[in-house]
Amino acid sequence: MGPLTDAPTTTAEALALFDSCPAVEPDDMIGTWHGAEVPTGHPLDGLLAASGWWGKAFLDTETVHPLLFPTRDGTALWALNPVLAFAGLGPATRVPAARKLPLSRMIGALKPVLATRAPRARLRTTRYRGVDTATMIYDQLPINDVFHRIDDETLLGAMDLRGIEVPYFFVLRREDSLRLQ
């Protein structure tokens, strides 16, 4: 996905980049975005990649699908209910082996139970690190994903998760070619 996701960095370097980028308006987020982790040594590093996570869809400010996965044939995307899959995220981050499990196969096999058509997050403007910017707020989890703009097609996200002191970073690139099932 590019230089941000290819080389490990530190939380301090990722925060410096995040702080140097401009804020985003919620309406500018509308669309489908392909995601990738930015490795910083965070306890979550590797977990989303291992799960097979593809990205996020912002249909409007009230209709957000935070966890998209590709269908088996790769021609479409399906939305996963985050509360069913990641409610125990805190304890899982303390078990390094959890990132090495075949999570993508397990999630694919559990698709009938984990899939949702209902939105599971919404977009609002919040203040984070002194800047008002677009923030995806999960409906049922203590997680806010805060966004700054790298360029017109690329966003840097900082996941603010209750109970973990430093943000988890990821990149989103606009990719509207795949549609939700």
Score class of each variant (00 low, 15 high):
2 G>C: 09
173 R>D: 05
122 R>F: 10
64 V>L: 04
114 L>R: 12
123 L>S: 07
132 D>E: 14
166 V>T: 15
9 T>N: 02
21 C>H: 07
11 T>D: 02
37 E>N: 04
126 T>W: 05
146 V>F: 05
135 T>K: 14
79 A>S: 15
38 V>N: 01
106 M>A: 12
181 Q>T: 13
100 K>S: 14
48 L>S: 02
162 R>P: 01
169 F>K: 01
7 A>V: 04
39 P>M: 06
92 A>H: 14
66 P>L: 04
93 T>W: 08
99 R>E: 00
169 F>P: 12
63 T>Y: 04
44 L>M: 10
42 H>V: 05
47 L>D: 01
62 E>V: 02
49 A>L: 03
18 F>V: 05
60 D>R: 07
117 R>V: 09
84 L>S: 06
33 W>F: 10
131 V>K: 12
89 L>E: 07
35 G>T: 09
178 L>K: 14
64 V>T: 11
174 R>I: 00
8 P>N: 01
39 P>H: 13
58 F>C: 10
62 E>D: 15
149 R>V: 08
104 S>R: 10
158 A>G: 01
6 D>Q: 03
9 T>F: 02
110 L>S: 14
18 F>Y: 13
136 M>T: 06
173 R>K: 15
153 E>M: 05
143 I>G: 03
150 I>H: 09
88 G>S: 11
68 L>C: 02
113 V>Y: 12
30 I>A: 11
45 D>C: 02
126 T>C: 13
105 R>D: 00
3 P>M: 12
147 F>Y: 15
169 F>G: 10
150 I>N: 06
82 P>M: 03
32 T>E: 02
60 D>C: 06
169 F>I: 10
38 V>W: 00
155 L>P: 09
